[in-house]
Design a protein around this nucleic acid. Structure first.
Lengths: 219, 219, 219, 219
DNA sequence: AATGAATGAGAGTTCATTCAT
DNA sequence: GATGAATGAACTCTCATTCAT
């Protein structure tokens, strides 16, 4: 499963290098990145509200005040984290999809990737899930754009499938996109509960794709 | 849509006897109920952490201290609320399902009911969604049993469908149950974002059922 | 010198008893008063910024949080203190002046009273002096009205003196009022420096009055 | 009014040689001076405590750390500023007074100068006023000597007037000096409040001098 | 000398919880 | 049972100061 590389190379590719400067100025400030990585860990472990800024600082190996050099508030740290990671996810998915020809294959891949992410980056997955629900206000005001962008990627695949005749056309691509995301997120939630067998990831991915693709089939 | 009765009869049975029902049991300790109803409102509006105990007290028309006569802590209030409402939901769904004969009809009804709940009891739906994500710890320690019980209801319908030959048998009923719950919850989330057209409730319910039932069909 | 009583009976007279209720309901909440009295002490000792809210709380014998039940912020505490005490000062001066017939006697009395206040309520005097300079913004936004009201009392005495022919009429009463206040405040400042002989209060008061009254004389 | 020259020649001598003065000594370490000039501005605008060291640094066009090459602390910067400017004021006043023959004329000139300072160097005047009240400790420990020296200048003029028979001898020169300073400072305060008419500077100066000189007259 | 990113102690404020009435 | 004033622990954020470059 391709989740692991996503966390490294491809997802970070476009994070800071705006212009492809030949003489890569060796961007200083890995601090921001260290803080974000630490935030993922502690937010996942304790949740946003139960996490103290000093916890993040300690985990990042920086002073409390340093966090405020990169983020204006604890809340901004959360939002930045969300945006940063969803950006990476979108970038990675966008890079993966063109390799596949059919909409069916692409949808299957999306499911595979998002569930793979749950496996390989457990903490990131938890944070994303949690972030989306911590505060409706936060979500509405800041996270919505990036979140919508990701949903758009899924919806686009569905729409293409409809155009090509692979998928039935009597359903709304956006509705399906939201339902797919929700289904995947729901699996994450129950895994977080520790009840379901986490090993069955491949099986889960396959079964979900099977049901979904048959459900969407145009025949 | 059958959401309305649910909101009235079982879910709010003793809450506020507007009409003078002949044999109304008229529970005397309505304080607890008033507090729970107030909690639904303010938690839905502001979220759990942003809500102060005094906000709940004010909304319930009781003193701050009174809340601690019925609940041991703010957290306990949240958990009690969750358990109380999921119990009602299970009771209502359990009462509705026997009226339908096929597993297909029952699954369609579950989707209809849960989405209907979003419409008719917006606040309750938000609280349930929010509660489930506030804190993994809270979820794991307290909410899991009731939540699992609800998932079990869905899974049971799927299993029955498989036994009767209505549904394909190559998928895990529990996996499907979690995915269905997640998909419905995902729709709630995006509605909370205010982006999707909330009017399309019937259409959403129908489309989702169509896709799901075809996806689960045994043929 | 009449400064001492001012701090007690007369100055507090109008503080809370809005209507002269016969059955004095024994107003609860001496807390507010205790906090204000504590604030005078610690603000005078350490200045506003160097004083921690917890210092005031400790001095008042209340919990930190209690202060916020009566004042919205540390700043509001300072402003309230200022307003409260200037109100008392005005009330006391206003009660004293009618006992004297000539403007000359009244001006002499004002000087006497304000300097007496410096002696008997050293801390209060320091706080008032300090408050007026801590923050121009604070002063402009909140303290100005009460402060102006006190200046007005002085200016009014000067004006009356001019009307009666006791004082020269070629000077602005407001200008003189401000200068008198400043002169008195300046003496307080240098006393705070600990350099000047503080015992010479009566002499200072007399000399200042002598110079001022001759300076203002209409002949 | 002679305030302008003071503001230029002695007080700002090396600050910003706009015209190419022939023999300009052109001090090389203008950093210290730039910092002090910046400090006057920002302290006057926001007060000492509300001003951040980085604000001063930015206004001076230097790095935060640079300030600590010239001043040991923020407090030391304030004290240095005070001492520096009072020294200049004393130097200027000391140079001006010998030009006048009578004590009456000299006192009138001092009033004129200090009030003129309020007009022409608003910021400096505010800083001086503010500095004196920020903290009794600061004042006592550091600012007192220079401040006393300035008071001494005024007291000396009064004393001389008494010796020459121009002024009454039944008042303490130091008391009068402190009162005069306070009166002038009090006018500054109310001007800072924005209430009084600031245009009436000449009138204020004249009226104050008139009252004071008549009050001090030996007849 | 100059820089400014990093530090971390410290303070104001909030609010869940208690308990005397 | 009910109240709500009082409590005080805990947390976010600020900013004077330092020091590696």
């Amino acid at each position: 499963m391709a989740a692991a590389p996503m966390a490294d190379a491809p997802l970070k590719k476009n994070t800071r290098a705006k212009g492809a400067a030949p003489v890569a100025p060796r961007a200083r400030s890995d601090k921001r990145e260290r803080i974000l990585n630490a935030a993922v860990k502690v937010f996942a472990r304790s949740g946003f509200h139960a996490t103290r800024v000093s916890d993040v600082a300690k985990a990042a190996g920086v002073a409390d005040g340093t966090i405020y050099l990169y983020f204006t508030s604890k809340e901004h740290l959360l939002v930045s984290l969300f945006e940063d990671r969803v950006e990476r996810l979108i970038a990675f998915v966008s890079a993966e999809l063109p390799k596949l020809k059919t909409a069916r294959a692409r949808l299957r891949r999306i499911i595979e990737l998002q569930l793979g992410l749950l496996e390989s980056e457990r903490e990131l997955a938890e944070v994303m899930t949690v972030i989306l629900r911590q505060s409706t206000r936060l979500l509405k005001e800041y996270a919505a754009p990036k979140f919508s962008a990701y949903l758009e990627v899924i919806a686009h695949v569905v729409l293409e499938g409809q155009r090509r005749g692979e998928f039935r056309s009597d359903v709304s691509p956006h509705l399906i996109a939201r339902a797919i995301f929700g289904a995947l997120d729901g699996l994450a939630l129950t895994w977080a509960l520790g009840k379901a067998d986490r090993g069955g990831l491949v099986r889960a991915s396959t079964q979900l794709s099977d049901v979904l693709l048959r459900g969407l089939s145009s025949t």
